[in-house]
Each structure stands twice: as C-alpha cells, then as structure tokens.
Design a protein around this nucleic acid. Structure first.
Lengths: 199, 199, 199, 199
DNA sequence: CATGAATGAGATTTCATTCAT
DNA sequence: CATGAATGAAATCTCATTCAT
C-alpha cells in the first residue's frame, strides 16, 4: 500500500483524530487537554505534534476531513437523482445519517463548529458550510423553475429554514438523554417542509 | 468620588454583565479574560468577584437574566392573543426581535449557550429553553385541536422545526457581514411554516 | 520564616532583577529557569511576569539598567577631568571598578552580553557599548591633537585595543579561582597602554 | 547508494561538525536544534548520535579540533622563529588569520566559547586557551630576559593585554556589518603593543 | 464595598535523545 | 552503520481567583 511512497503511519494521525473527536465531544474543545488526546490515542504527548502543529489544527482537521467526506459522498449519492424534491430529501437523509453515524463527531460539529465559525473566519469548514447551503438553495431554485415549489418564496431563506430544521434535529439528538435513531427524522422534516413550499 | 451620591449596587452588577456580554461576544467565553471584563466595566478585577463567584457564573447570569426577561415579556405579550396561528407568529416575532435588539447578547446566545447546554447539567437557561419549546409545542397542539393544523403532524417535531428555523435566522444574522433587520424575517419564516402545517 | 506574616519585598522589580543577575551568573541565561529567579526573589512565578514580559526582557533590563548607570556615573566623573591621559585612566578605573563591584553582574556582562550582541538586533545595551567605544576613541583623538599621543595611530583601533585589554582583565577576573581586586588592574593596563601610544 | 564506494566515516563526522559550526554561528548554541544540524549535514537525526554522544559534545569537539589544529599549526610555524618580537608577531598573525579564515568558526569561538568556559570547568578547550596564554607569556618573558622588553612589566598581565587586544579585534570583526580582512589588524596591534613594552 | 498586586496550578509546545527497523 | 518516528521531561507563560489594605 506504500507504492514506494513512505506513508508514515497514517494510522497514528487517524488515531489522534479519532481520540480528539472523542475527547472534544466529552469535554469541549477548551476543556480538553492535548495530553488527554494523546493518552486516548495511545501515543506520547509529543507525538501529537508530529502530525498536527497545534491543538487548534486538530479541531480544524476534524472539520475539514468530515466536510470533505460528506461533500464527496453527497456528490456521489446525488448524481443520479434528478427530481428536486428527491434531491432535497436525499440531502436531508445524508445530513442526518452522517450525524447519526458518529455521535462524538456530531457533538463536535453541533457544539464546537458554531463557536469556530465566529472566531475562525477564513476557516475552510465555514466555506464547506456555505457550499452546503448553496447546494440546498440551488436545488430548491431548480424546483421552483420546474414549477414544483412556489415561485414567490425566497430560495435563500427557504434553504436556511431547511438547514435550520435539520440542524435542530441534530442538536436535539445529541442533547437528548434518550437514544433514538436520527436519520428517520429526515423524512418527517421533509414531509412538513415540502408541504410548506410546494406549489 | 461619588459626589456624595450613593451609586446603587445594581449599577455595577449591571455594568459587569453588560461588559461581559460584549467581551464574550467579541472573543468567546474561553478566550475572554476576567480582567478584560473588569476593565470594560470600569471596575477592578477583584470587584467582579463581589458580584459573581466565578467567570462561569457571569455567563450563566447573562443567560438567566435574558431568559427571565424574555419569558416575562413573552407571557405578557401573549396574554391577549388567542388564535394559535397568531400566537405562533407572535412568538416568532418576539424571538427575533429580542435577538435583533442586542447583537452582543445574540452572539453569546447563539455561540455559547449551545456549548453550555451540553456541559452544564440542568442550569436554568436550559430549563428556560425547554419551557420555550414546550410553549411552541402546546400552542401548536392547540391549533391542531382547533382544526387549524394537520392532525397527523407530531407536535414536538414541528415545534423543533420552527425553533430550528428561527434559530438559524438568528445565527445567520450574527454571522452575516451585511447589516439587516432580523425581526422581519419572522414573517417570512412563518408564512412558509404555516403553509406547511395548515390543515 | 515569615512567622505567618506576609513580608512584602520592598521593591519587587528590583528583587527580581537582582535575583536574575545572580541566577544567570550561576547557570547562564539559557540554563536558568524563571522559576529559579522567582524563588530567589521570594516571589511567585507569575509575579515575574507582572514586571517583565518575558525571560529575555529580564536579561535586557539587566543590561540596560547597568549601562545607563555606568554612562551616567561616567559622565559625572569625567566632567572635571581634562587631560586626555587622565580621562583615559579614569575611564579604565570606572570600567573595572564597576565590574569589580558586583561579581554576578560582571559575569552576566562578560558571558551573556556578547552572545546577545550577536543575536539581538540593536538593543540599547549594544548602543551603550558603541557609545562607550566612541568615548574612548574621541578622548584618544583629543590626546593626539594635543600632541600627547602618536599622530600616526588609528584612533579607532587604539580604542579597541584598550577596551579589549580591560575586557580581558574583567573576564580573567571572573574566571579566576583566586579572589583579587579588579580595579587596581586598571593602572597596570594604563601604564603599558600609555607607554605604547605616547608621542 | 554509495556507488559501491565506502564513504569514510570521517566524512560524516566532518560534515556534522561543519554543519554544527554553521548552525551554531547562525542561531547560537542554545537556539540550535540537533535536527537542524542533521539536516544541514545531510544525515538523519539519529546519525548525529553515532558520532557524538550529545549536542554538547559537538560543541566541545568544534573547540577541541580547532584548538588542536591551531596549536599544531602554531608550533610548526613558530619553530624557526627565534626573536621574541617576531614570535609574538607571528602568534598574533596566526590568531587572526585563523579566525579570519572561517567566519562561522570565529563566531562560535567568540560568542560561545566564553559561556562554555564559565560553565564547563574541566573543558579541554579551556586548557588549550590556558596553554595559549602561557605561550604568549613565556615568549614575552624570554624577550624580557633578552633585554628587548621592559623588565618591570608583569609578563602575565602583558600577555593578557595582548590576548585581549587580539580577541577584541576578532569580536569586532564578527559583529561588524562591514566585511574587511581580519589578519592585517595583527600588524597594527603589534606595532602599538611593541612600542608599549619595548625597553 | 473596592482595589489590584500577588499567587500558583496548569497547559501547550519543544526538542534532545533513543531504538526498532 | 543509518534512519527518523516516537518519546516524555521540562519550561515558559497565562489567568482565574484571593486577600491585605
């Protein structure tokens, strides 16, 4: 698997990211110590700095990697879907499936990303977020052109409403003591949403 | 010093809360120093501890006071409104009016409250938040009983959708470079929402 | 001990500088820990940072303060001396008296100042040092104009020779196991020096 | 890898010493990282430890090797010179020629050796230095016995003055922005020195 | 009540050195 | 011999909190 290229223990970088996600989810970014992450990853404190140049970069890497994965996966899954209603439904599903698949990651996203967006302006995860909103908006606009959705609605606003609803599902899910499946909420949200916007 | 006039204690507590809101909004809770708050409030570092027993308590006080005010104000304004649709519309307005009235406070709420909800067990702002969701839910259920809203919708879910949409409006508003008025978004959201849930 | 009473150190900044001089002289700048300085000064670690913004600034402050004192004292003492030979003799005396008066300070100067001069661009002690060389050079040039010293000698070079000789006396003194008085070496150096440069 | 040719060990040791001299000259001993030296020498970090048992030993080796070379070269060059005045002149020339031949080495000597002399007591370079001073002193004493130099001068003191003057030339040369040749300064120093001590 | 100098525990980060390959 | 990933001890600096005045 090295194909002649020395891939220095991609294992360890991975382990650190996973450990950091867990630790951040448990304590919050600011209350988490690099030493905790190192211990959880099974490496020495210093090793963390062979893979990331600061604690902050670890957080960024978590966001970036997840965003990249989500975007790639999303693109692939949406390729074959043409009906704007189905596309939106797919988007909603993907959103909540992904969040529901890794609770720690979801916590980090829902709890820490917001803070980060405020303070790390030129931060790539924020750009990923903007891209995501655009995708919803354009899909919706397409539906409007196709006569599926009411033409008098502001596409940008509508996309925020949909995102806000999904985001709230995720937030409630991570805050809830009860353990329920998150993905199915997508359908419920979409039913209401589509009724609200249909022509 | 005081020109013989006794400066009421409330003044200083107030000044500290206001200063803290501003400082937290600018830097985030963890990056804010108590010394910054004290300087901005025009008091000595130690004075902060005469009014609050810790930095964390300042944050909680900001939440609690705002929540209490919002709830009191909400109760009063809703007293005379009976139509569930109008009540929901009023709630949305109050929500965004309050957020839009104090940008710093809005930032603190949107950015820091969520983090706090995950890590601080059962503090009163979280209870206020739950109360708020209940209010929406019950108003909606009332509308269902009155035949205004579709009976097959899950009231709890619907209330989260509405809250999520409003919350997203607020978040977008604080993150936006553009300066627009937040409160009017309430109507736009409600139009879509009501179309979506009406019987 | 303190008999339970907190004995405030009179001038803390002063105490820290003195302690730092001692610690630096014993261990060298890079091997000295701020904690050592704090302990020796009888203050907490953090207190050091109320008076100096970094360990490096402590070193600079030691240099700067000593330089300023030396220059002020030198100016005063030289005011009344007109004969260039006597002026140079006075300069040599002041140089070695000052070094000989505080062994720790002498060590810091002889050992750390040179390193600092190479790596820290244009800090004030380096300027003080340049000023000092100028003073010697101009005094010597005056002596040349007065016919006391050989006119064919390069004043700048000569001033460096004199400084180098005095500097070497100081270095030998701090490195020596034996305890002898440094100041008297000034006369011995000056006798040879003046023989070498007299017309 | 080696093109079948065995790379002599001396090569690598040599490369490391040269690299270290350069790195130390640029950053100072304490600010230099072993990794920097390794990179500059074109070897792996660990390889450094096959040739030297610590970073400190590298510094010592630089001193020792230079001292040994200087002493050997000095002995050879002085063999045929009998006149004490000429011997001293030769010594001065050799001193400044050697320093002037390798600026990095000169920086390390002038800047780091002093610190080392204070903190590493039984350090062989210090012994080399003492030997060097003895050589000057005895040559001078010989000149006194030969009636060339004033008998009332303290040979030890005189030797320090000469050393101090030469040392100062070297220090000024490395600190100077200007690029001039160092060796010629030897004659200028010796002219003044010999005038000062001649009978 | 108010002050602000002082405290000191604690966290991030660096880097000389080791050792399995 | 050579490598360089991994180690982990150590040090600077920060800042919430206290308390003598």
């Amino acid at each position: 698997m090295n194909n002649g290229v020395r891939v220095p223990v991609a294992d360890k970088r991975e382990a650190i990211l996973r450990a950091a996600t867990h630790v951040f989810a448990r304590n919050g970014y600011f209350n988490s110590k690099v030493a905790d992450i190192a211990r959880e990853a099974g490496v020495a404190d210093g090793t963390v700095y062979l893979y990331f140049k600061s604690k902050e970069e670890i957080l960024h890497s978590i966001f970036d990697r997840s965003m990249d994965e989500a975007i790639a996966e999303g693109r692939k899954q949406l390729e074959s879907v043409v009906d704007p209603r189905e596309r939106l439904r797919k988007i909603a599903h993907l959103h909540l499936e992904r969040m529901g698949a890794d609770r720690d990651l979801a916590v980090v996203f829902q709890v820490e990303l917001r803070g980060s967006m405020k303070f790390m302006e030129e931060f790539s995860a924020a750009r990923g977020f903007a891209e995501y909103l655009s995708l919803i908006r354009e899909t919706f606009a397409e539906g409007q052109r196709a006569g599926l959705f009411r033409k008098n609605l502001n596409a940008k606003l509508v996309s925020k409403i949909l995102f806000g609803a999904l985001d709230e599902m995720a937030t409630n899910w991570i805050l809830s003591k009860r353990r329920y499946r998150l993905a199915p909420m997508a359908d419920e949200v979409m039913d209401i949403f589509l009724s609200g916007v249909s022509a």
